[in-house]
Each structure stands twice: as C-alpha cells, then as structure tokens.
Design a protein around this nucleic acid. Structure first.
Lengths: 255, 255
DNA sequence: CGCTTTATTGAGAGATATCAATACTTGTGG
DNA sequence: CCACAAGTATTGATATCTCTCAATAAAGCG
C-alpha cells in the first residue's frame, strides 16, 4: 500500500455531508449507522501521492471525502492514459473487484482525503442491507455509463467537441455537489486533460484559446468561467438540460 | 419491450454449459439450483432484432446463451457508436441499473438466444447467496475494466493498433469459450467494427488488407485466420500471453 | 531571482476522413 | 436458375484534422 491510514473516528458516514452522493444513499438512518462501522479509516493524500497502483491486491474500495483524484491505465510499451477524474462522494477502486487486483493507478491531483471501505466487510454488510447492495449496484452501473459516454466521446467526437463535453460534464458534477456550475478551478493539468480526451496538450491549449476567442469561456490558467453554456452544449452535441427546451418546435426528423 | 419471451423450462443454469462464464461461477450446486428460479424465461432474437432500447425501463438483466449482440449509444445529433460486442455467457443490461432505464440499445448480430434475469428477484437472491453477489460484482467490475481498456485503445492507439487489439481480444474471448482462437467468423460488419474502434469503414478495410498483405492474417469476407499472433500482439502493444516469454532477456527500462 | 515545469502559439508533417468509383454478396422475383 | 437490386466491402485520390517539432511565454518553487 502506498498510503498511511489515519484513524479519525469522529467523522462518520452518518454525519458526513457527502451522504447524498456516496454509498449511503437511500439508507435508513439506522442502516447508515451500520455503514459507519465499515469506514474505520481515512487516508490523507498529498498532491501527486498514489492511493493504489495497478497490480496491488484489492483490499478496499475508496470514497473521496475531499479533493480530486485521477485514475490512469498503462500500456506495456509505456504509453498511459488518464481514464477518470474523481470528485468528492465518488467511489474508487471498483476495477479491482474483477480479479482481486486494481487495474489502474489512482493519484491525487490535489491534497485529498479518502475513506477506506474494507471490501470484504462491505460485501458482508451488503447482504444484510438490501438498500446498500442496491446503491452499490447503482454506483457501479453509473460508472459503466460514464465510461461508455466517454467512449462515445473518444470514438465519434472531434477535439473541440470532446473538450466542450468534458467541461460540461465537469460542470454538472460540480453543480451536483453544490459548487458553482459556471466557474471553477480545473484541478488537472492540460496534459491530464489531453490524456483523458485522447488529444495532445497543444490541441487542448488551442481549443481552449479558440473557445475563449469565440466567447464561450473565459480562462486564466486553471480558473475557468463558462460564459455561453448553450453554445458549449451545442458543440458537445447535446441540448442544455438546464434550459427551457424549445425542441417541441424543432423539425422532427423522419426515419 | 421489443422481445417476445419463450418459456423453456427444460434448460436451466444448473445444466447450462455456460455456467463457467456466466452468473453461477463459484456457486455450490445447491445454490445454482436456487439461481434456476431466477431464469424462468429466455428470448429468441433474430438477426437485427433488439433486446432493449435506450430509455426502456429496466426490468431485467440478460445473459447471452448463444449468438452475438452489440450494444450502441446514440448522440442527440444522430451520431451513434457501437460500445460493445457480447458473446455467450456475458451479461447485458447492466447500464440500466443506475437510473432504472437502459442507456444503450442492444441488438442481435445473428440469431441469438438470451436468458432473462429479473433484476429485482436477482437482488433478493444475491442478498441470500453471498457468492452470487460476489460473482455479480466481479462481472460488473470486469465490464468496467473492459470498457476502460477500450478507452485506452481509442485514446492512445492508431487505427492499425486498435484493429490488432480488437482481433486479439475477440480471439481471447472466443478461446475462453472453447472456440478456436486463431480462426473464426466475424459476426459484425466492417461498419460495426469501425464504429466500435472509432475509425471509418474504409480504414478498417485498408488495415485488414494491409494485415493480410504482411502475412499477419488471412481474411475472406468475415472469415478470418490469425496467422502471426506474435506480430499482432506486438502491434497491439502487449506481449503474447500464450507464448513463452523471452522478456527476461529484453533490456530493462530504467525509470 | 533564476531554474524548472507548465502552457501557449506557429509551421509543417502525417494519419485518417471524405468523396468517388468499382467489385463483390446476398436476397428476391421472374 | 438466372437477373437484378440492395446492401456490403475494397481501393484510389484528395482534404482535413490533429500530431509533431520548435520556439516562446508564463507560472511555480527553491
């Protein structure tokens, strides 16, 4: 293991503000208290530190308490790619369940804190609390869906569209956690964004500059303001979910 | 629903040859008999028929009994992409658990048969049979890993490499099911391969021709022979797992 | 303040897409 | 059984997007 757990029994799921995004969603308060017993430890990570490495045996899954992490995969020839960015309340380590070893590397993008959920204990409890099992399945399923949308982005979209979709997806996830949806700090470098989107850093930079020129965003370093959300959504190929849709009046495509 | 279930009580998990790839892996024979009760129905699909459509409410997950299916996602603007191909023993519909609606379309590539697993009943039983719950988690986790490797392919590999990796992955999955690993029929069209790999059909065709010219494969229509597996593995950026590795003699990369 | 890392911008090269023509398969109906 | 049509695949020529290489600028860090 690369981390050193810190026991901090004062903070528990039952009093954690992230309850509505994390594992305990949909549980009765009595059941959440039983979940408290699962999360005995947390770990502090400094920027750049790894939570686990590919090949490490799976002992736990993790939930981000604060901060941001990335997961990345390596190819034998040394190429590697960022596969996901992980915000508070999101679960990490699920790729290790399949064969008992993590498949990816998880690395903190900023100083972060992560809850440690012993996986064996979790499975035992999930058998006893159907709502907990159900929530876990939902989490895994959404993770699948997110990866599959990411596949769609890498498979069918041009660089510009991928970047717009990425910014909007980040915006939505931040908004769901109570942050501003139109102004935030990018915790990841241009290199990491490019890796995640399957494009080169120079292209990321050019596209961001182009977005800024055309008034879609304002960007200074890693601080970004989304100015024209509708324009970004149009680029990303989806309608703006926040906007009153006029789609009833749009011509209907006959098949 | 787009399918018409056919009740066929004679075939059960407990006697199904796919047991070693499917849901009942790791279960005692007594427990497999309890799983039998989950799978009361099967459905026959003709080539081109859909098992479910995106937006359909989730009622079941599915396991391929024979045949091949594809799943694909749609973008609002009409673009779509094949996200996965599904062989016997693989589970479909997992992307519907997250919000209770399937996110993808599942379509048969050839005449196929699929087992219907009522999802609610499954969750109930999974709470009672820890090994069943554990196996389900492993299946979802492997699905995640597979999608993430696919992301790696779309994000970092060139067309040639993607195609080699695709052929080898198919070969491995077929071999695991007892088929030949070096000679098989592609059940999917060039268009579907291209969509899956994020490249155009013309490029797929050109790359296949190039592989054939350089003696890596022989291909006639959809029938393919993998001639030089090592060469393909090299293209795909991974060592051939079947081959006695000489890697101990390869120079060690210093970090 | 200087060094290292990170990001921006430009010019040219390369891989794949697009457009177009042709060939091959498969299925249908005469 | 053959002819035709519709779908599918191959191959070539050109266009386009993104990568690569290179130089510069800005920011973070000791």
């Amino acid at each position: 293991m690369n981390y050193k757990p810190t026991d901090s029994p004062t903070t528990k799921c039952s009093v954690c503000v992230l309850g509505q995004f994390c594992l305990p969603v949909g549980l009765s308060s009595a059941d959440v208290i039983r979940v408290d017993t699962l999360v005995k430890e947390r770990v502090q990570l400094q920027k750049g530190e790894s939570l686990y490495r590919h090949g490490d045996p799976l002992s736990s899954v993790f939930s981000v308490r604060f901060g941001t992490l990335k997961t990345e995969y390596c190819l034998q020839d040394g190429r590697q790619q960022v596969i996901g960015f992980h915000l508070p309340g999101e679960i990490l380590g699920l790729d290790g369940i399949g064969d008992g070893h993590y498949q990816s590397d998880a690395i903190a993008l900023e100083d972060s804190e992560v809850c440690i959920i012993r996986y064996e204990a979790f499975e035992d409890l999930a058998c006893q609390i159907p709502a907990l099992q159900n929530q876990f399945h939902k989490i895994m399923s959404r993770e699948l869906t997110q990866d599959q949308r990411h596949l769609l982005s890498l498979g069918t979209m041009r660089a510009e569209e991928r970047l717009a979709a990425f910014l909007l997806s980040l915006s939505q996830r931040l908004a769901a956690r109570g942050y501003l949806n139109n102004e935030f700090d990018l915790r990841m470098s241009r290199v990491e964004i490019g890796s995640y989107l399957g494009i080169q850093i120079e292209t990321v930079s050019r596209m961001l500059s182009r977005f800024a020129e055309s008034g879609l965003i304002q960007i200074k370093q890693r601080h970004i303001k989304l100015i024209d959300m509708d324009g970004l959504y149009e680029l990303a190929g989806v309608p703006n979910p926040d906007r009153q849709s006029c789609s009833a009046e749009t011509p209907i495509k006959q098949i």
